[in-house]
Simulated assay, not measured.
Amino acid sequence: MSSEQFQAAHESIYNAGTGLLRYLQKIRQGRLNEGDDTKGLQSVEDNINEALHNLKENKFRSL
């Protein structure tokens, strides 16, 4: 994979993650407004935030 391809993939993943995070935040806020417990959604949101931060900081971990 070339550097340009890697950068494009990196940006695409970051943008998709950011969009997913915004969508999740809207869902969670709606549920909070309805009085629902959103601990599970908060956990997912925290994981996405951590992954986006690590991606932005170029901290990768292999599985």
Rank of each mutant, 00 (worst) to 15 (best):
A9W: 12
S3D: 15
G30F: 01
L24P: 01
Q5N: 14
N15R: 11
G35C: 02
L63Q: 13
Y14E: 09
R22I: 11
G30E: 05
E50M: 12
I48C: 02
G40W: 08
A8M: 10
Q5T: 12
G30S: 04
E57K: 08
N49C: 07
Q25H: 04
I48H: 01
N47C: 09
H10Q: 07
G35K: 02
Y23E: 13
D36L: 12
D37S: 05
N58P: 03
R28S: 09
N33V: 04
G30D: 04
N15E: 09
S43E: 13
I27L: 12
N58G: 04
Q29Y: 09
A8R: 09
K56R: 10
Q42N: 10
F60S: 05
G35P: 00
A9Q: 15
L32P: 03
N33T: 06
R22E: 15
N54S: 01
Q29S: 07
Y14H: 10
E11T: 13
M1A: 12
N54Q: 05
R28N: 04
K26L: 10
G40L: 09
I27Q: 07
R22M: 13
L20C: 09
D36W: 11
S43K: 14
N49M: 10
Q7T: 08
Q42P: 00
L55V: 03
A9D: 14
I13F: 05
H10W: 06
G40C: 07
R61T: 15
V44H: 02
Q5W: 07
G40F: 08
S43M: 10
L55N: 00
Y23I: 06
Q42C: 06
Q42Y: 06
L20F: 08
S12L: 10
T38I: 03
Q29L: 11
A51T: 07
A51W: 04
E45L: 05
N33E: 13
N54L: 01
H53N: 15
A9R: 14
Y23H: 12
L24W: 02
L63R: 15
Q5G: 11
G19H: 03
N47R: 14
K26D: 14
Y14L: 12
V44Y: 03
A16E: 12
F6W: 14
N15V: 03
T18H: 10
G40E: 15
F60P: 01
K59G: 01
N15Y: 05
K39Y: 12
Q7L: 11
Q25P: 02
K59D: 04
N54F: 00
A51E: 04
V44A: 03
K56P: 00
I27K: 08
I13P: 01
S12G: 13
S62P: 09
S2G: 10
N54D: 06
F6R: 08
E4R: 04
I27V: 14
L63P: 06
R28G: 02
I13A: 09
T18W: 11
R22K: 15
I27M: 05
D37P: 00
N33Q: 12
K59A: 05
S3G: 11
E45T: 02
M1S: 10
G40P: 05
I13M: 06
T18R: 11
K26H: 13
Y23M: 11
L20W: 06
N54G: 00
Q5S: 14
D46P: 00
K39E: 11
A8V: 07
R61E: 15
G40T: 13
R31E: 11
Q5L: 13
L55R: 00
L63A: 15
